[in-house]
């Protein structure tokens, strides 16, 4: 009886170890995928930083400065036009790996993604034209910019803020 219990215990431990090591292997993300996720999150951070300058002025938290506003808006316009092909390798969605909120819908609906990307290029260009032309002009371009950001997050990002 003791032998039976012992062998059952060993079997259980072995099974647990096997499961644990599988789990570890799965959570060990391919460095190429991890790098792409890091890169695109950094890209988003660059958007947020520059929009933060524009939004801070729009909300009156930072004094309006035409040169600074134009610089931020130009950065945004340039960022929106970067080719992002290298950021989105297959298998880097949130169903496949941890550490990302990118939904599989991105890969299932490329035309939709591209259309929303084009809308961001347009809204950023409008902001670039508006930002240096006074505070009211900047404020007027803010809502369309927010709409362009949100249009992508609506369908392609896991929501759980």
């Amino acid at each position: 009886m003791r032998t039976l219990a012992l062998s059952a215990g060993i079997a259980l431990t072995a099974a647990t170890l096997a499961l644990t090591s599988t789990a570890t292997a799965e959570s060990h993300v391919d460095p190429a995928i991890a790098g792409a996720i890091k890169a695109r999150q950094a890209h988003m951070q660059l958007y947020a930083h520059n929009i933060g300058v524009l939004g801070g002025m729009a909300q009156g938290r930072i004094d309006y400065d035409a040169d600074l506003a134009s610089a931020a808006a130009s950065n945004l316009a340039a960022l929106s036009q970067l080719n992002q092909m290298t950021y989105w390798p297959a298998g880097s969605d949130n169903a496949s790996v941890d550490g990302t909120k990118a939904l599989p819908a991105i890969w299932d609906d490329l035309p939709g993604v591209m259309a929303r990307g084009a809308a961001l290029v347009e809204a950023s260009a409008a902001m670039e034209a508006a930002a240096g032309g006074g505070l009211e002009s900047l404020q007027g371009a803010m809502q369309a910019l927010g709409g362009a950001c949100g249009a992508c997050h609506q369908n392609y990002r896991q929501s759980d803020n």
């Binding site: 803010m142 910019l145 992508c152 609506q154």
Partner: peptide
């Protein structure tokens, strides 16, 4: 309150992330 108003206007959060999911439509 000002930050909530901004979010309900442009969708931008205080750290300039933006509304996604169902809230995108709500903000519209």
């Amino acid at each position: 309150e000002a930050e909530i108003v901004e979010y309900l206007t442009s969708g931008f959060t205080p750290d300039f992330d933006s509304a996604g999911g169902e809230m995108f439509e709500v903000v519209q």
